[in-house]
Design a protein around this nucleic acid. Structure first.
Lengths: 140, 140
DNA sequence: AAATATAGTTGACTTTGTCAACTATATGGA
DNA sequence: TCCATATAGTTGACAAAGTCAACTATATTT
């Protein structure tokens, strides 16, 4: 690996750090943080899951997660039902209001992507997406 | 723009958020945060600059920056000299010890990139870098 | 000269994240 | 079966990161 390649990757990382920071800054004017959004996303896409799944996927502290889930429950966004095979754990799912909030965040996220790419023609857009896909394939 | 394209970009963003989080988590076991590293980077690469330059480049709160700079000065990493044409501002630069710390962080950053790409063959590495470069060209 | 803008500092505060101790339950041996 | 150890999640205490507005001093505009 050449020195120049390292520098190019770092330059990309700095750029993308800024871009993501921009995108995530208080998650699109919603009252939810990036972490909260990601947690809602996990519960929404897994259907039902347990706190430990989220801890593993997002590498989040369990105490921190516990509090966020408590807040979500208080706000009526999620439900917990006792897990049948493990009495220590509960199974998480979105309530109807939770689903609504998630869909709003999701739509706002989509809109932000559209905004960022608004002035790109089709060919550039395709290049952009395929480049991202390739990076993902290589690094994942 | 198709729905699928939006989803692919968002998927990449989630992936890269995690990757950068991993890279930046306490900036390579140094006692410096991501913000602090970026600030050192700015001062190091601009040679001499003012706080307001950093505020603009990094979109950081001026109060927050002021405290970080104060800490850097106390630790002997930076120097401030009065700006000649603007008595409100000072010109920032790295001291020798500051340069040393910066170089260490810089080297550690390089090593982390090497680590992440360690098991890629030359062709994949080239694809990776060129994909990043293309994304940067398109989005910047 | 007065009004307004900008550079940076400081205090007060909120949010975000970390760590360890703790309860309760589960699980893999002896 | 009983014991040791591991895991799920909660809680308290705390630290780090970031925000906001008020303030001083200097610059700039009118």
């Amino acid at each position: 690996m050449t020195d120049q390649q390292v520098q190019q990757i770092r330059s990309f990382n700095r750029f993308y750090t800024d871009l993501l920071g921009l995108l995530d800054s208080h998650l699109l004017d919603s009252p939810y943080s990036l972490a909260e959004g990601r947690i809602l996303f996990e519960i929404a896409s897994n259907g039902e899951c347990r706190a430990s799944d989220i801890i593993e996927t997002l590498s989040i502290d369990k105490g921190y997660l516990s509090r966020i889930l408590k807040k979500f429950e208080k706000e009526g966004l999620i439900e917990r039902k006792a897990s049948e095979n493990d009495k220590r754990a509960s199974v998480l799912s979105l309530t109807q209001p939770g689903m609504k909030v998630f869909k709003e965040l999701d739509a706002a996220s989509n809109q932000q992507i559209e905004k960022i790419t608004a002035n790109l023609d089709d060919s550039k857009l395709e290049t952009l997406v395929s480049s991202m896909t390739r990076i993902l394939q290589i690094l994942r």
